[in-house]
Simulated assay, not measured.
Amino acid sequence: MRSGDALSGAWRALARADDGVLMRSAFYALLVTAAIFLVVDIREFANEAAGSGDEYGPARDPMTDQPLLPPAVTDGKPQDAPVAPKTDATALRQPIRFELAAGGILEARGTIDPGSADRFRTEIEARGEYVKVVSLDSPGGAVNDALAISALIREKKLTTRVRTGALCASSCPLVMAGGILREAEKDAVIGVHQVFNGGTTRPTAEEAMAGAQATTARLARHLDAMGIAPGLWFHALETPPDRLYYLSEAELKEFRLVTAPPPPAVARKKT
């Protein structure tokens, strides 16, 4: 994060510290400071007063307002993904769909659009206790829906999984965090970046400041409640919205976004 470079060293040092009351207090104090820097760094930041502009999703082409995979950059070069996602980009741009597969696996593929949390709840209620695993393949999308899906996953004590070659980026890791067990197969592509406004509404400086502080605290609180280490959110804060920070296998375990090894890969047949 350009104007936040002075905080980066302190954030990383704090992330390596032992968990405890002091660490949590200092962490949330830093988040408030970070929110101020985000107002400067994040172009077109989302805020509560702007209505539906609360996007934490993939970078968008300003000419078409369509998500781009991988994120577009305004200058410099994006960090290369460890492997190329296998899912066709056109499918990932579509509103997220939930399809039941064999073995109690609910496949969730596409962009997390407003209203997707309601569709997810309907799907879970219709399937009763059959669903055990939510398999994610998404470039991210609307924050509120991602948080609601994540909370329902935790309520139902479901496992979340990112398959080999699947993408889980932007707000998708928020959904993944809800899993009572969280799994990533080899060559799963998982990445984070800053919150940004994917809508057309332009907030004032005061609105952006209020939105930055509220959103930063809300997301950090959710990740903390899900048992995710603070370092994950630090990397998101430090990565501009037109890039992705791709998490290594070691980081997925360090930040506790992955809690269990996935089972051996098996043929997946839709029911």
Rank of each mutant, 00 (worst) to 15 (best):
A117Q: 12
R119S: 06
P70S: 06
G20E: 06
A267M: 15
T90H: 10
L106W: 00
E207R: 08
S135F: 00
E185D: 15
A210T: 14
G9N: 14
L247G: 05
P241F: 10
S248E: 12
A10V: 14
T122Y: 09
S25F: 12
I190H: 00
A210E: 13
S138A: 05
A84G: 07
D113E: 13
A29C: 09
P67Q: 02
V73D: 02
G9I: 09
L174C: 03
K132E: 09
R2M: 06
T216M: 11
E251M: 14
A102C: 07
A214Y: 12
G20V: 11
Y28H: 10
L136I: 14
E55C: 12
G227A: 13
L38N: 02
G128W: 06
V133C: 07
A260H: 15
S52P: 08
K186G: 02
M63K: 14
F27D: 10
L247I: 14
K270C: 05
A84N: 13
D54C: 07
R163Q: 06
P95K: 13
K270A: 11
D187G: 03
A29L: 14
L30K: 03
D118H: 09
T64Q: 07
P264H: 11
D242F: 08
W233L: 08
A236E: 02
T122N: 15
G76T: 14
A250G: 08
L7Q: 07
S171Y: 07
D80T: 14
L244M: 11
G104H: 13
R161V: 02
D5F: 10
G179Y: 01
Q94I: 05
D54P: 01
A17C: 09
E249F: 06
T64K: 07
G140P: 04
Y28W: 08
G179Q: 03
L7E: 01
L22C: 06
M226A: 15
L219K: 01
T271V: 14
S150V: 08
